[in-house]
Structure formats: structure tokens, C-alpha cells
């Protein structure tokens, strides 16, 4: 199959998906193994905070995979900025035992924050709900003879084969039908309470 590259999914959509899955993966890791995170960053005892960050990442990650991810991406960007602030605070402590790990985390979170911000902006432009020119449709009645002429016009129109047959019911169906079987239609001699005749 020769692919033509005209497609609805744009690079920012694919980036949103990647960020979504990344957020879900990291969120689960933080939720399930918070001690590993706190140990590597030298902040033992802060497991509850790590779990909260994990839940946040999970939520924004799922949102980034939704039909309209822009709100989740903005939320994720705010979260990333908060994470950056926390990591910078750790880095400010020159005696911090895991400065190397913190620097590494800072680089990773910084890259994710930049990607999130870029993607949130792109998705906001892309999903500009009701954006663009707002036309005036007040002249589009759809009734060439005017609205007043149309009111009830079909209700009084003759020769309507379809109208009364709105329901999928044999009693109101058009066209030739299968005959109901004599035993079901007429013969009720075998009737007992609780049979098919009791509706």
C-alpha cells in the first residue's frame, strides 16, 4: 500500500501520546516503588510526596492520551515545573549526598517540562474548540418556501406510506410480511398461565 502522508494525526498529537505513556510509566513507578526514588535522590522519608507525584503523573498521563489532551498537558507542565523547583531546592544544598542523581533528574524533568510546554501550546492551537471564523447561519432555515409554510406541512401531506409505521412492530409494518403461525395467532386451546401469551 502506498502511503500518502496526509493524515489527521500531527507530530504534536504523537508527542502528546508519548508524554502520556511516559507519565503513566513514571507515575506507576513512583506509586509502586517510592522508596527506590527517594533513595536515589537522597530524600528518604519523602515517600508520600513521591506517591502523590506518581498519582499526578498517572492522571495527567491518562489525560494526555484522551481525545483532547491539552488540559492534561498544561497540568503536566505545571507539575513538571513544581518538580523542577523541588529538585533545584535539593541542588542548592551543596552537601547533598546525591547531587549527581539530582542533576540527572533535573535534566530529565527539564526536558520533559520543555516537551510538555511545547506540546500543550501546540495542542491548544490545534484544539482551538470553536475557533476561527464564526459564521452567521440565521438565514439557513432549510425551508425554501419559508418557515411558516413548513410548519406541519408533512403532517397534512397525503399519500404517506411510511408515517404510521414508526415502530418495528409487525402490526404496523409496511410491505409483505410473513404470516404468523396459526397456532400462535388463533389456537389458544393449549393456553396455560405463564405461557408466551402472558406479557
Amino acid at each position: 500500500m502506498n502511503l500518502d502522508r496526509r493524515r489527521s494525526l500531527q507530530p504534536s498529537d504523537r508527542l502528546a501520546r508519548a508524554l502520556g505513556w511516559l507519565g503513566i510509566g513514571l507515575g506507576l513507578y513512583q506509586l509502586l516503588a517510592p522508596r527506590s526514588v527517594t533513595r536515589s535522590l537522597g530524600v528518604e522519608g519523602a515517600e508520600a510526596i513521591v506517591r502523590t507525584c506518581g498519582a499526578r503523573g498517572l492522571a495527567t498521563g491518562m489525560g494526555a492520551l484522551s481525545v483532547n489532551p491539552k488540559q492534561a498537558l498544561w497540568a503536566r507542565s505545571v507539575g513538571d515545573v513544581m518538580d523542577l523547583a523541588a529538585l533545584l531546592a535539593l541542588l542548592a544544598d551543596r552537601d547533598h549526598p546525591k547531587r549527581g542523581s539530582v542533576k540527572l533528574a533535573l535534566a530529565g524533568v527539564g526536558a520533559c517540562a520543555a516537551a510538555s510546554l511545547y506540546c500543550a501550546q501546540a495542542q491548544t492551537r490545534r484544539h482551538a474548540y470553536q475557533g476561527g471564523r464564526t459564521p452567521d447561519y440565521r438565514g439557513r432555515s432549510g425551508f425554501p418556501r419559508g418557515l411558516e409554510h413548513a410548519r406541519g406541512a408533512a403532517a397534512t401531506r397525503s399519500g404517506l406510506p411510511s408515517r404510521p409505521m414508526a415502530l418495528p412492530s409487525p402490526a404496523h409494518s409496511p410491505g409483505p410480511r410473513f404470516q404468523t403461525t396459526p397456532s400462535r395467532q388463533r389456537d389458544t386451546s393449549g393456553y396455560t398461565k405463564g405461557s408466551d401469551y402472558d406479557y
Binding site: N2, R7, S8
Partner: peptide
């Protein structure tokens, strides 16, 4: 159709 939000103009 190729997935969520993914419609493509293709040769078939």
C-alpha cells in the same frame, strides 16, 4: 482509519 485520531488519505 489507523487508530484514535488517526485518519489517513491513502491508496487502497
Amino acid at each position: 482509519w489507523h487508530g484514535k485520531n488517526d485518519i489517513r488519505y491513502e491508496t487502497v
